[in-house]
Design a protein around this nucleic acid. Sequence first.
DNA 1: TTGTTATTTCAGTAATTCCTGAAATAACGG
DNA 2: CCGTTATTTCAGGAATTACTGAAATAACAA
Lengths: 191, 191
Amino acid sequence: MSLSPLVETFVLHFGEMGGRWGVNRTVGQIYALLFLSDRPMNADEVVEALGISRSNVSMGLKELESWRLVKKKHLPRDRRDYFETPADVWDILRILAEERRKREIDPTLSMLRDVLMEPPATAQDAFAQTRMRDMHEMIELLTDWAEDVKRLSDTDIRNLLMLGSKVVKLLQVKSALVGMGRADSTPSGGA
Amino acid sequence: MSLSPLVETFVLHFGEMGGRWGVNRTVGQIYALLFLSDRPMNADEVVEALGISRSNVSMGLKELESWRLVKKKHLPRDRRDYFETPADVWDILRILAEERRKREIDPTLSMLRDVLMEPPATAQDAFAQTRMRDMHEMIELLTDWAEDVKRLSDTDIRNLLMLGSKVVKLLQVKSALVGMGRADSTPSGGA
DNA sequence: TTGTTATTTCAGTAATTCCTGAAATAACGG
DNA sequence: CCGTTATTTCAGGAATTACTGAAATAACAA
């Protein structure tokens, strides 16, 4: 691995983190490398930078493409494939959220809906279903919210985050002024 | 594995999901089993329910305790350890967020701060640092926000989520009324 | 077509992770 | 103390996952 110490630190760290996020070390490293690069890189450059086999790089890039975390790019007089990551970190977050939703959340929600349809055979099963119902409700709230926030501009998201839980206070004031007991009764909705 | 079909479906699903979340299949299964149980279970009952070795259960429970996702409980005339999960799904979410922050986010932030201190040796390094700075800023915004929201009551969180991005509209109205250009200038703060 | 370069696939192996049974430790009651 | 029961540790083996080199495929130029 022939990288500046700065880049190497970051790349190695993301290699480790990859493991905890369901991708293997080299996939994490490839992603980190491309993220820090100021220009698209081709597969051989990745091989050279990380000291792993050409075939491994090919597989890693393919996986990252399936996550939409890297995109192919072509340079004018060059037949080789070049790769780059989205530049904006908020875009990256959006993409990651969408992909994880598709791969983990949606199948889980669907599985929960299925088992919640079943008539409980025992008291145990009935109890299990109440827990599953709670979980289903929570996940649905979270994903609907995420879907909603996703459409905001970067700056709107930043403002929203910076406000944090102060929003709640604000809502309470609003409810008081308008004279409603609750903050809002219609869940989710357009941007 | 001798479980009702209902529970079995859920347990197997969480076993699979475990892999994507940095814990192994059996740890996911043990957690799922305890989550659905209407009473604390001891290790032998888990062995019986999941058909895995006693030692494996011991290790799995230990890992789940380290995540604070299960707690030991003792029954009156019984020397054995019993285990249960927090009942409230929002608590579970809070705990999960805290633990993942401690294990993944904080070390990443610390590593980013370190490399951002280094004077860049090359133009490449300088560019890499701008990317790292973006990432650092985003992660910090997100974690401060999460820290802030964590302190809210379940119902406040639910209201906040149900509002979704409508909050932004509301803020714009508020800014207009009060005559400020921005929503708020002091990031984070108490509940 | 043929030759050249780029990329992917995949069988075999290396490396890692997971699981088990056996042994050690601990926590009691008598 | 001893005997019993509960739990943990851990070395070794089983299972899984990751990686490589070689061969196949693809994409092009001449």
